[in-house]
Design a protein around this nucleic acid. Structure first.
Length: 287
DNA sequence: AAGCCGGGGCG
DNA sequence: CGCCCAGGCTT
């Protein structure tokens, strides 16, 4: 029974830390769950580093179910690095609309350009090299290395964090990632790192559905300010308005979109402080 | 370490 | 309405 194995794992870990027995039992629990509940996802059935890279960027702070559709649409329009690097930014942003965190789209294209200029139009396989690229941080670099190139370097994201906090640190609060990372590293199933990380993440996603989100007990857990009335809502609307303009394809404005939007917001708020307009619920209304 | 970078779906 | 999401970047 799984619940019995889980309580035994917690008990053993308190006594022996990552003993061979603990590690084996842990892998058994994760792999057994995956055997029955593996999620079938489009980016899991390819080894194309570019496609996997695109999926990883889309999945940053964005739920799997919302990425499914965009992933297909994006790859159909920008099937490879060369196409993406050569595409106008406004077209990339147009396809991105609805995913959020639009900066990801800007960095995605910038990264493609960098790959053309400095990496012969291909993604490097080493995490250390991937991490130097725009929009690719510690997690994404190692995820790409694992999923596209079979590397086993340890990494943490919200699902993995959830698994280790729930199974190994059930009665702890404010758990720091530096405490989790050695546990990730010490329990990696080296027979197939790609499959192992899929299994780990699927188990974490499962825990989030069946328990009060265990990652709330992470030291890094923060809740986001409300979207309504925020600068993010303003930015979103301004971007959509700018995108709707016929002449927006000009490279000059497109490349400085973020700067332009920030300047607009700053001006709006300045105007509000001068009493020229009122900003209400994130909307600009002329009195 | 803390804040900011969207948007949608779900309880 | 509050919550969260395969994080990254800046300060």
């Amino acid at each position: 029974m799984t619940t019995e194995r889980i309580s035994r794992l917690g008990h053993l870990f308190r006594q022996e830390r990552l003993s061979t027995e603990v590690t084996d039992l842990f892998r058994e629990i994760i792999n057994d769950h995956y055997r029955e509940n593996a999620r079938i996802l489009p980016w899991r059935s390819t080894f194309d580093p570019y496609a996997i890279y695109v999926s990883e960027v889309m999945l940053q702070q964005t739920q799997v179910e919302r990425v499914r559709v965009k992933y297909e649409e994006f790859l159909a329009r920008f099937p490879d690095i060369t196409t993406l690097a050569g595409a106008p930014l406004h077209e990339v942003l147009a396809v991105w609309q609805g995913l959020g965190y639009n900066r990801r789209a800007v960095l995605l294209k910038k990264c493609a350009e960098t790959l053309m200029e400095r990496f012969n139009g291909t993604l490097p396989s080493a995490a250390e090299a991937l991490e130097t690229l725009p929009g690719i941080g510690h997690y994404t670099a190692r995820a790409i290395a694992a999923f596209a190139f079979g590397a086993a370097a340890p990494f943490i994201e919200t699902n993995i964090r959830t698994v280790f906090i729930h199974l190994f640190l059930p009665d702890r609060d404010r758990v720091h990632d530096r405490e989790i990372l050695p546990l990730v590293e010490g329990t990696i199933d080296h027979t197939d790192p790609r499959r192992w990380y899929y299994a780990l993440m699927d188990y974490g996603a499962h825990l989030k559905r069946t328990h009060v989100n265990p990652s709330r007990r992470s030291a890094h857990h923060t809740r986001q300010a409300p979207f309504k009335g925020s600068n993010r809502e303003l930015r979103s609307r301004i971007l959509r308005a700018v995108m709707a303009q016929p002449g927006i394809s000009g490279a000059g404005l497109a490349d400085q979109l973020d700067t332009a939007i920030t300047a607009v917001i700053d001006n709006l708020q300045q105007m509000e402080s001068e009493g020229l307009i009122t900003l209400q619920q994130g909307l600009c209304r002329i009195p």
